[in-house]
């Protein structure tokens, strides 16, 4: 009914306008990066490219796809993201399910988990654990240490708790075990939250670069984010002997932009597929009917 009222119509118009403007504001930097990637190197160095390419060229993309390191790092990034997200989600769902029940020891478990979000021993001991477990230079070094996500676990637990108790009790009476309740009741009802947390986990893995630098001791096996880190650092010539070839690498702003853009593409493309779970807004109600 309210949709028909005049004030709501005015609100709706303003709302659409406002959201549209915000969207525009958010996409500008990426358009800039894109414009630089299609511009000539000289124009990019002079910083005269804004939102439209200057001296349009594909050279940067050609060079990017000629670079085996870049393509390799894409593959490693996908491998890491897929396996890391699977592992994290398995652990998250399992732990959150357990924690959503009431039982003695629950609070202790929660604090044990939350505590790790706050306290850590720092770089040296963490590094020692990973090297002593001989994980260096393997995919495990990138997915195991961060496999348990405190944030995701707590949030998932919240979502599980929101599931009406009657549904659970009804199935328990039917004699369904914990595992079957999880599979047949909790999971189908939690698709939006699972999609959301998977997305967080994927994005986290896709963007994380520091562990790659630390634990991968062969630069040819860097995942994408780590590889990108090696090309975007700006040069500091204060104390180094100057070498023209290093300067030339600095000037390749167009290639850098191309790689940043292509590097963001896969994770951007995943989004619309997960989006359907948390945009429609009727999933939960539909299942409950």
């Amino acid at each position: 009914m309210y949709r028909k009222t005049m004030p709501y119509k005015i609100f709706n118009g303003c709302n659409i306008l406002f959201l549209g403007l915000m969207a525009l504001l958010c996409i500008l930097p990426l358009i800039h990066v894109l414009a630089v990637s299609f511009s000539s190197s000289a124009a990019a160095t002079a910083n005269i490219v804004t939102l439209w390419p200057v001296d349009f060229t594909f050279v940067a993309y050609q060079k990017t796809f000629d670079n085996p390191l870049f393509l390799n790092s894409l593959v490693y990034a996908v491998a890491r993201t897929v396996s890391g997200t699977l592992l994290t989600m398995l652990l998250t769902i399992s732990a959150a399910y357990g924690l959503s029940k009431s039982f003695p020891g629950r609070t202790a478990y929660s604090w044990i988990i939350v505590f790790t979000m706050l306290f850590n021993g720092g770089l040296i001991p963490s590094y020692m654990v990973v090297t002593n477990l001989q994980l260096t230079n393997t995919l495990w070094a990138l997915i195991l240490p961060s496999a348990v996500s405190v944030f995701n676990t707590i949030l998932m637990m919240q979502f599980f708790r929101a599931i009406p108790k009657e549904l659970v009790e009804a199935s328990s009476i039917d004699g369904a075990g914990y595992f079957r309740v999880l599979i047949s009741i909790f999971l189908p009802l939690s698709l939006p939250s699972i999609a959301t947390l998977s997305l967080f986990s994927m994005v986290g893995h896709w963007n994380s670069w520091f562990d790659g630098l630390l634990y991968i001791t062969d630069y040819r096996k860097y995942p994408l984010a780590t590889f990108l880190q090696t090309i975007i650092q700006s040069g500091d010539m204060r104390n180094t002997s100057i070498d023209p070839s290093e300067l030339a690498a600095l000037s390749e702003r167009t290639i850098r932009s191309a790689q940043i853009f292509i590097g963001a593409l896969p994770i951007l493309l995943v989004y619309p597929f997960l989006q359907k779970y948390f945009v429609s807004g009727t999933t939960m109600g539909a299942v409950k009917e």
């Binding site: 850590n120 021993g121 040296i124």
Partner: peptide
Amino acid sequence: FNYMPMAG
């Protein structure tokens, strides 16, 4: 991966 390194 979290509690052991806390010795640090």
